[in-house]
């Protein structure tokens, strides 16, 4: 198994609060890796540090053998990591197609001059971007809404659109922050097969999720965060039996009353 992403002793503090402490984990190429833990355990902070939204105080990330730039979101995307948000963040006034086309921005080069003169390269690139965006909408199954303004899409379709937009950045690692939040059972089922399809097509998936059933059914390996520390990392079946994990979830011991 080839290592895709390695977190080495990542730590992040906000004032006096330690959100992440010495978190190390390894994500292998081609797997679906779950990151779970109670509310406030530091999962989303981990995402934010990984994708460059925050700068960590300690540690680093190594992606495909080279260290990731810190605090530069667009360079992280360029390196091949894309994310979605827990509370969907689409470009609400743009059409679904445009949302996905925006995602392709980082993979295109046309500069001001090329665009102003409509150079052949610029036009060709634009054509490919449109085509690719349409393919991705088809891929996530919302191509019929290509023209619809994002804010008018249904909740489930907005989730799908956000995934399509992330895929448009041509990531090697797709980081999904609670993609099933607020979905009903049918929608969750469809989401599950979409994620499986994405993995099948060669994109490694990092998944934060509350829905334990989804995590257990989908993930190859799972890491558990509690109070910013990694308390377990293994295949789902083993993690489920881990006493520390059970106590973290059941609110025993150190959680107080």
């Amino acid at each position: 198994m080839i290592t895709l992403l390695e977190a080495r002793g990542v730590g992040k503090r906000f004032g006096g609060l330690t959100a992440l402490a010495d978190v190390s984990l390894t994500i292998r190429q081609g797997e679906v890796y779950g990151l779970i833990g109670p509310n406030g355990a530091g999962k989303t902070t981990f995402f934010n540090v990984l994708t460059g939204a925050y700068v960590p105080e300690d540690g680093e990330f190594v992606f495909e053998g080279s260290p990731l730039p810190q605090g530069k979101p667009h360079q992280v995307v360029a390196a091949g990591i894309a994310r979605t948000f827990q509370n969907i963040r689409l470009f609400r006034e743009l059409s679904a197609l445009e949302n996905v086309m925006c995602g392709h921005h980082i993979r295109t080069q046309a500069g001001v001059w090329g665009i102003l003169t409509q150079s052949r390269q610029a036009r060709e690139e634009e054509r490919l971007t449109t085509e690719r965006a349409f393919e991705l909408l088809t891929y996530v199954g919302i191509e019929r809404f290509a023209d619809t303004v994002a804010k008018n899409l249904s909740y489930g379709d907005q989730r799908r659109l956000e995934i399509a937009r992330a895929l448009a950045t041509e990531p090697r690692l797709l980081a999904l922050d609670e993609p099933a939040a607020g979905m009903n059972a049918t929608e969750t089922g469809r989401l599950k097969s979409l994620i499986e399809q994405i993995r099948h097509d060669g994109v490694t998936v990092l998944l934060i999720e509350h829905d334990v059933k989804l995590v257990m059914g989908l993930c190859d390996r799972v890491a558990v965060l509690d109070f910013g520390k990694k308390i377990a990392e293994d295949v789902p079946a083993v993690v489920q039996q881990n006493p520390a994990v059970i106590s973290a979830y059941l609110g025993g011991g150190k959680h107080g009353h």
Binding site: T51, A53, P73, H74, V77, A78, A82, R83, F85, R89, L90, F91, R92, E93, L94, E98, C102, G103, H105, I106, R165, A166, A168, T169
Partner: peptide, 16 residues
């Protein structure tokens, strides 16, 4: 347009 709509999301999809 993306940046005007949601700057954080624009950054997250690789727009400088």
């Amino acid at each position: 347009a993306a940046m005007r709509d949601d700057e954080l999301a624009a950054k997250a999809i690789g727009i400088d």
